[in-house]
Structures are given as structure tokens and as C-alpha cells.
Nucleic acid binder design. Sequence first.
DNA 1: CGCTCGCGTTAACCCGGGTTAAGAAACGCC
DNA 2: GGCGTTTCTTAACCCGGGTTAACGCGAGCG
Lengths: 206, 206
Amino acid sequence: MTRGVAPGLGLTTEEGAALEAHLSSLAPLSSRTWKALLALGQRRRLAKGGCFTRPGAPASHFAVVLSGLLRHYYVDARGKESVKAFRGPLDVSAPYAELILRRPSRTYIEALTRTELLVFRFDDFEALARDSVELQRLARRFGEVHFVQKEQREYEFLMLSAEERYRQFCARMPELLQHIPQHQVASYIGITPVALSRIRARSRRP
Amino acid sequence: MTRGVAPGLGLTTEEGAALEAHLSSLAPLSSRTWKALLALGQRRRLAKGGCFTRPGAPASHFAVVLSGLLRHYYVDARGKESVKAFRGPLDVSAPYAELILRRPSRTYIEALTRTELLVFRFDDFEALARDSVELQRLARRFGEVHFVQKEQREYEFLMLSAEERYRQFCARMPELLQHIPQHQVASYIGITPVALSRIRARSRRP
DNA sequence: CGCTCGCGTTAACCCGGGTTAAGAAACGCC
DNA sequence: GGCGTTTCTTAACCCGGGTTAACGCGAGCG
């Protein structure tokens, strides 16, 4: 593989091109800005089960997933996990709310499989973006897209039954079903693994 | 009352100053940008029960609440209402997700009391903001703040019981309790009025 | 090979909340 | 002031989902 985009990073041309295309779909970047941005990133590998972020740690970085799969989740006082999100290739992964609020993370971000990340210090991004319309627009777009996702989730919790939420999940993220243990899907839609198993049994053969 | 800020709008100096202070807390604006922005707004009065937005209508405007109280809600096929948000003075109210996606609104925004708004055409804002770092930063900040609110709500649905959500609501928005009928609070926290009444009875006298 | 461990399923029991309905209190509206 | 409407409460009944526990299965590993 050639390494033409950003030699220092070891990003392949394919990776770089896909990433640029994906980010450009949010907001276009001049090639100058794009290069400056990319220069801020650092490649990092996460073993299965490894954590990008854990509660208590200061929220200071965000990352683009190059390959692999991450899950974002909370853990309550009794140890119950609640899955907030999954992130795959080209998705941005971060303790986003905590970065915005400049508070310590309260979420785990954990690799479900071996995962490769392109990691950025948030403050580096902020410094680069300070007077850049392009990057402010990108950051704006990014916030908006994530807002829309959370509002969709709010809609589902307010308006749909657990069974309907499960159907939506299957329809919306069919690829994930292959790679994610079922009890984490249950947690994502806000029910227990037992309840999800019943829902599936019900819809398999009545 | 004096009308020194934006004579054409009929905004009082107090209103203008409070609004500017509030928006500046999100992101600072030069007084030039601030004036240009304000000039885009139109005052509008909503009678109790009047709607700023309803499902099916194109999402084209957002508004700042000058006085009064709004509620945002969905209605499903069987007529069940689900309250998404409340908005009071200085809050921005809009079918935000639909503006972002440029889709027709799917939410009602309705006045709970007589309400005064400062209404903006979204496209006017976009045109003004296109090359303005200040306004892109403001819009970014706005998106981020709303994302954080929705994620907090996701946290509450995933991690808290209905009773805990109710306590949080009371703690977080005590002023609203005076002005909002209880069944709308119930809807906001995702339960029925009957269930909320039981929760209150339980905590009143065990 | 046999072990353990994580995962999914099933069953039994319980409880929170949904549903329906009826009645009481508060609030406009004329 | 009278009257309908909206709001809140309470009760009875039902059901979805939580909890606990037992079992089977496949994967990983010593």
C-alpha cells in the first residue's frame, strides 16, 4: 500500500481518501486545512477489550475509527452497564459531551474487536479551528448530526415499545448485529438481555 | 420603556440587553454582527394554545422566547402526545432536527401561556452566517449545548427509574412545576399521568 | 481432552407502570 | 354565578419487563 497522504501518520492513501470524503460530506475543507488537520492525528491501536476512555479520566481526545468497532457505555453504582452508542469505521468516537463541558469523562469507550484509531487532542483541534470558518463549520455540522441522532433516540424511548425499538435497531444497523453480543444490543435499547431474548422468541414463532 | 436597541423590532432595551448577554454566553459576537443578526428577527405574539410549528409544515424558522412558555411535543398515530421539551424566556425554540435535515417538521411547538417570540428565517441566518466565524461558532456552540441536553436525557432514560427521573425534573426545573400541568411533566419523563400521580402519592406519605 | 467462561434461552415469580373508569377539585368561559 | 372542561387522584385489573436461577452451548485454553 502506498503512503501518500500523510507519511508521518502511516495512513494509507485509501484510508486517507475515504476519511477525507467522509468528513467532506459534513462540510467541505480546503486541501490546506485538510492537511493541517490530518497532521494533528496520531495512529493508535486498541486490543479487544482495550479502552480509549474511562470514567474519571479527563476528557481530552477524540478519535476517528479507521477499523474495528467501539462501544460507548455508562456503568452505574451497582455495576449495571448501559450502552450509549456503537462506533465503526469512519465514525468519530469521543466522550463528546464531556469534551464540550470540559469535564472528566463519565463513559467507557471500549474496543469490541481489535481497533485502529486516528487520535486527536481536542485542544490541538480547537487551536487550529479558532479562526477558521471551515473548521468551525465542520464542528458545527458535527454537533448538529450528533444532536439529530440523540433526538431520534429520545423519540424512540418516548414513542416506541421495547419490541419496536429492537426492530428499528435491526433495520437501522443490520451490519452491527453480526458483530455485537446480543446483551449489548439489549442494553442499547434500554432493556435486559432476558427481555430481549423473550422478544426475539415471541417474534420467531407465534 | 425605551426602544434603543433595534427600533424597528420594538424590542425594549432590557429585552435586547438580556438577549445579547445570554447569546454572548454561548459565543461572543461583535456589536456589528449582533446588530445584523437582530435585524433579521421579527416579533411575533402567540396566544395560549397557539402553535409556532406543527407536523407537516416545512421547518423554516427558529425563535427566541422573549416571554411566556412553549412546549415541544410529538403526537403518534393513536393521538398520544409525548413532550420533548419546554422553552422559557431567552431559550431558543425550533424544530431543530428538522431544520438541520431540511425536512418538514414532525413536532408541535405550542404556547402554554401567551408568549412573545423573536422569529428568524433559518435561511436568512444561514446567509448571514455563511462566511462568519463568529456566527458559525455561535451555531456550533448552540448545537453542542443541545447535544449535551439530549445526551443527559438519554442518560436518564437508560439509567434512572421513572421516580428518579421525576425527582431530577423537580430538582432541575423547579420554576416550571408552577406553570406546567402535571400530565405534561409525566409525558416529558416518559410515563402516564396516572403513574406520576402514584409516584407522588408514594413519596408523600409512606 | 476436559474446564471454564461468556452468551443465549427458558421458566417462575414479582413489580412497576399501562389501561380504564369514576369521582373530586380547580379553572376558565359565558 | 352556573356550567363545562381540564386536571388530578384513586382503585381495579392486566401485562411487559425485571429478577433470579437453571440449563445448554460454543469458544478459548490449559
